[in-house]
Simulated assay, not measured.
Amino acid sequence: MLKEERRGRILEMLGVEGKLVASDLSVALGVSEDTVRRDLRELAEAGKLRRVHGGALPRSAVTGTHEARRRQASAGKVAVARAAVGLVENGQVIILDGGTTALEVVRHLPAGLEATVVTHSPTTAAALAEHPNLEVVVIGGTLYKDNILAVGAQTVEAFASVNADLCLQGIWSMHPEVGVSHPYYEEMLVKRAMIESADRVVALASAEKLGTASSFVVAPATAYTHLATDHDVPEEILGPFRELGLEIAKG
Rank of each mutant, 00 (worst) to 15 (best):
M1E: 07
M1D: 07
M1L: 15
L2R: 08
E4M: 13
E5N: 03
R6V: 06
R7S: 11
G8T: 06
I10S: 12
L14A: 02
E17I: 08
K19G: 08
S23I: 14
S26A: 15
V31L: 06
T35S: 09
T35A: 07
T35Y: 03
D39Q: 13
R41D: 12
L43R: 10
A44L: 08
A44K: 06
E45M: 15
G47R: 10
K48Y: 06
L49T: 00
H53Q: 13
G55L: 05
R59D: 08
R59M: 12
T63S: 11
T65A: 09
H66M: 12
E67V: 13
E67I: 08
R69H: 02
A75H: 04
K77T: 08
V78Y: 03
V78W: 04
V85K: 14
N90I: 04
I94F: 07
I94D: 08
T101D: 10
T101W: 04
L103N: 04
L103Y: 01
R107N: 13
L113R: 00
A115Y: 14
H120Y: 06
S121N: 13
T123D: 09
T124A: 13
A125H: 02
N133F: 03
V136H: 06
V138P: 02
I139K: 03
I139P: 00
G140T: 13
G140V: 14
T142Q: 14
L143Q: 15
L143W: 03
N147I: 12
A150C: 09
V151L: 12
V151H: 12
V162H: 10
N163K: 15
N163I: 10
L166P: 02
G170R: 09
I171K: 05
I171Y: 01
S173Y: 02
M174L: 15
P176H: 14
P176L: 05
Y184G: 06
Y185M: 15
Y185N: 10
E186I: 00
V190S: 11
A193W: 02
I195Q: 08
A198K: 05
D199F: 01
R200I: 01
R200S: 10
V201Q: 03
V201Y: 07
S206F: 08
A207G: 05
T212D: 11
T212M: 09
S214E: 15
S215G: 08
A219K: 14
P220W: 02
T225F: 08
H226C: 01
H226L: 01
A228R: 01
T229N: 12
V233C: 04
E235C: 02
L238N: 09
R242C: 10
L244D: 07
E247H: 08
E247W: 06
A249F: 03
